[in-house]
Design a protein around this nucleic acid. Structure first.
Length: 579
RNA sequence: GCGCGAGUAGCUCAAUUGGAUAGAGCGUCAGCCUCCGAAGCUGAAGGUUAAGGGUUCGAUCCCCUUCUCGCGUACCA
């Protein structure tokens, strides 16, 4: 990989000159403004400053020591102490030819494979998955794919909400008001109806609430009848989840819900109390954070006054289980930003409880999806939007667009295109905004065929595939990328050069995404790639070119398609041969 | 009150975490189909990055003050 080779060279030079320098501070990045060069480092300015050296002088001594002939890169000193690097033509052909040999071109596998646990999606039993589950599910599965692609070891775990006080009301409703026909037809809808029914009744009548509590206590103490009903509710819900996950192309290695940790909760709290981490306060067991100013006003309850456990105790038990059984290097929790305080409490408590385990705990939080009015996205009547309805509408809208643009395609083909485009558009629209900000949901923007959208990227891919179909039909020539050598290649137009160089940055982009769990960086990279391809496509005829020019352009098409496909798959999108 | 976010072109959003002249899409205006998919491409106009101060070679980004909005803040997750 050109970038990492160059960065290593740079670091070696710095080490020779300043043996005690922290090399992780020496960073090489693709140039923002390509007029200056292809790669740039500004690290030497900072380094010189720390040591009270003249930045330009330091940069110039580094420059003298750098020998880049082997890499075919030209370097120059600029401004207050930048070094700009220009990729020479030989480096481009060599690296493009090398990429042709790879199954995953331009991707750099991790030197040391990390073990990463991802906690995402986490829907609740007996409730429909709704718009609020999109971001966690889409972002989480994207990160899982990303870590696998760059060579990490991934364990995804769906921590479903299958235990809690709501089951008292559900059980009461199930026993007294269950409509078996409705349950058959729409299990989640029926369970939701039961919950709402009983919930309303409890508000009107105190005794109903008592009955519900009694059912909950029976469930918790292992009453066979209630346990059996609960199992049914879990099974019915899980099958609905599975339907949605399959539409979304999402899979989990484990589904260990809250109930899995039931029999560990008491032990967790006992241990916390024994170690002096939690203590009794106002009847509850509570962890205080007096030594941490930001958390001092926010103690965490690990066992409620009525003796019940809550999500803090469950999350601690879960964390203990995961670290003991899976020994991960990192655990990523992909949830709503509103849980920031909760996870700060959990992480702090866990570190105090288990000492300094090496596991890195990260709360990957995200903002809210808003409607056109800038308020949380709801239906007109104020209801939460169900995920299934959202996906249906996305596919319907996509189908009507495809049918309008391409009426001659058979219906089955159009439906498949609509599926890929519709679901892809939902996912892409969710991953594109920087995750910590809220974003405004818009069908029109999402399914537009221009701008930074899924359809635009899928279109770029489909156009490339169309070139290869035509190449075979009309020219009956077969194209074998694996037999390409650098001497077969020549790139001369600015469009070819920009496109080729942008391909080189795929690997570093993936690493940046993994570093901060920010897929929008990948979205923007792919959008730029598609844009560069589009202008290459306008300016550089492929099939009409001859000899090495044609080969070179076919290679660029091939690698662009490959990178687009890898990138889109990482985001969770399928690709289409035609659309 | 405290904490976490957000405030960037008319609108919706970016900006490689301190880099050189802040970028896209929509909308507006002007061009490009006897040419591999026009679902595309090229160009123009549009900015005191909420306001003010500070740090330095350099600030949308870091620090301080102020304003506006969202979320969280002892027993729901």
């Amino acid at each position: 990989m050109l970038h990492s080779q160059l960065e290593s060279c740079l670091r070696e030079c710095v080490q020779d000159l300043l043996p005690d320098a922290d090399l992780s501070q020496v960073i090489l990045l693709p140039c923002r403004d390509t007029r200056f060069g292809d790669y740039q480092t500004s690290s030497l300015i900072a380094l010189a400053k720390q040591r009270k050296l003249n930045p330009r002088q330091l940069a110039s001594s580094v420059l003298e020591k750098l020998s880049l002939e082997r890499l075919h890169i030209k370097a120059e000193l600029a401004g207050p102490g930048f070094i700009n690097f220009h990729i020479l033509p030989q480096a481009i052909t060599e690296n493009i030819a090398a990429a042709c040999q790879s199954e995953t071109p331009f991707v750099r596998r991790a030197k040391v494979s990390q073990s990463v646990v991802l906690d995402f999606s986490s829907p609740n039993i007996a409730k429909p998955m709704h718009v609020g589950h999109i971001r966690s599910t889409v972002l989480g599965s994207c990160l899982a794919r990303l870590h696998r692609l760059i060579g990490n070891n991934v364990i995804s775990d769906n921590h479903i909400g299958d235990w809690g006080t709501q089951f008292g009301k559900l059980l009461l409703g199930w026993k007294n008001h269950l409509d078996k026909v409705a349950l058959e037809k729409d299990p989640i809808g029926e369970m939701e109806r039961l919950y709402k029914l009983v919930n309303a009744a409890t508000e009107a009548d105190e005794t109903v609430l008592e009955e519900a509590r009694a059912e909950l206590v029976k469930l918790q103490s292992g009453d066979p009848e209630n346990f059996g009903i609960w199992q049914q509710m879990v099974r019915l819900s899980q099958s609905q989840f599975d339907t949605l996950y399959s539409r979304l192309g999402v899979a989990f290695d484990y589904t260990l819900g809250e109930s899995f940790y039931n029999d560990r909760l008491k032990g967790v709290v006992d241990d916390l109390v024994a170690k002096g981490i939690a203590r009794e306060s106002e009847g509850a067991y509570v962890v205080f954070f007096d030594d941490k100013p930001e958390l001092a006003p926010h103690p965490a309850i690990v066992q409620k006054r009525d003796g019940a456990f809550n999500y803090a105790s469950t999350d601690l038990a879960t964390l203990e289980y995961r670290t003991q059984n899976w020994k991960p290097d990192q655990i990523l929790y992909i949830t709503d930003g509103r849980q920031q305080l909760h996870f700060k409490q959990i992480f702090t408590t866990f570190n105090r409880w288990k000492g300094n385990t090496h596991v890195k705990l990260v709360h990957v939080w995200f903002g809210t999806i808003l409607g056109n009015d800038g308020k949380p996205f709801k239906t007109r009547s104020g209801e939460v939007i169900k995920l299934a309805d959202l996906l249906n509408e996305a596919e319907e809208r996509a189908l009507s667009v495809v049918s309008e643009k391409n009426p001659d395609l058979p219906e089955e083909t159009r439906r498949n295109i609509a599926r890929v485009v519709g679901i892809g558009a939902v996912k892409y629209a969710d991953l594109l905004p920087s995750r910590q900000s809220d974003y405004q949901f818009s069908w029109d923007k999402m399914l537009a065929f221009n701008g930074n959208t899924a359809p635009y990227l899928l279109y770029a891919y489909a156009r490339i595939r169309s070139i290869f179909r035509k190449n075979q039909d009309e020219f009956s020539s077969s194209f074998k990328p694996e037999s390409i050598e650098d001497k077969d290649l020549i790139f001369s137009t600015p469009q070819e050069l920009s496109l080729a160089k942008h391909l080189f940055s795929f690997g570093i982009t993936l690493e940046q995404v993994a570093e901060d769990s920010r897929p929008n960086i990948l979205c923007n990279y792919l959008y730029d790639l598609a844009g560069l391809f589009a202008s290459f496509y306008e300016n550089c005829p492929v099939l009409k070119a001859i000899d090495s020019e044609k080969t070179s352009r076919l290679v660029l098409c091939h690698l662009t398609a490959k990178v687009l496909q890898m990138g889109l798959h990482t985001l969770g999108l399928e690709t289409l041969e035609e659309m």
